[in-house]
Design a protein around this nucleic acid. Structure first.
Lengths: 128, 128
DNA sequence: GAACATTACATGCAGACGCATCTAATGCAA
DNA sequence: TTGCATTAGATGCGTCTGCATGTAATGTTC
């Protein structure tokens, strides 16, 4: 097991994560009023195309349950998603993307893709 | 330019970063009383083996200048580094690792390596 | 069905971050 | 030297996060 490879990979992950996260925060925030977490949740909703439980989102986004709960609260306040009680398990909460949410996501998607393309194209390999 | 490759790479970075960061926070924190940022600064100090300006550290750690200033303040409070005024430019601050800092770093290094090895060995390739 | 454990989500709280700003030192131009 | 722009680092402030906990609904055991 090559320890140097592991350390190099970790440095790569740290560098790319910092650069992309920072750019996403700036671009998505300034141009669309979304944070990276908000965008990610909208993105998952769009891809699944149906109501999702908070818990299901938790599995896909790298956030704690409490953080996700607040992201959804922010999105709801911005009318981008709506929360509804789950019928079969009244502890549960369904999250449902709104038309406005879909529109905002569609608007922000090219921005996100552009940022990622820029970050990951300039030095595509691990051996940068 | 393969957009799917970029998105997949981004997902990989997000997943590995979240997993490693979370584990580092837990292991370094519980076992050595260090956060990931604190460890990273100590690590850089050890590698350079000399006094460093705050600004020099800023180039290597992915933190804002203000965040780094506070990390150094925490490290100083824990007696792991010392701050000294720079003679040639009295605006500058030299950061100098202490013997206790070196010891703590040496103690924590195997922990960090073990965490990274576990995170990056179970699914080493991008195409996971 | 009563008592207790567990689960889903919300929330109080403290910690860490980035941005904007402040202070102090330096550089540079007139 | 004086005056102004710049730079290094510290700090106030707001935001986001995770942990611990709270509340309510569900499951389980007797």
């Amino acid at each position: 097991m090559d320890e140097q490879f592991v350390v190099d990979t970790w440095r790569y992950v740290l560098a790319k994560h910092a650069k992309a996260m920072c750019a996403l925060e700036r671009e998505l925030g300034d141009r669309h009023g979304l944070g990276p977490s908000e965008f990610e949740v909208l993105d998952r909703m769009v891809h699944h195309g149906r109501k999702l439980r908070i818990q299901e989102l938790c599995d896909e986004v790298h956030l704690s349950q409490s953080a996700l709960s607040r992201v959804v609260a922010r999105l709801e306040k911005a009318s981008l998603v709506s929360r509804g009680v789950c019928d079969v398990d009244r502890r549960g909460v369904f999250v449902c993307i709104t038309d406005e949410g879909r529109a905002r996501h569609a608007e922000a998607l090219p921005t996100q893709r552009a940022v990622l393309a820029e970050v990951f194209t300039e030095a595509p390999a691990l051996t940068s």
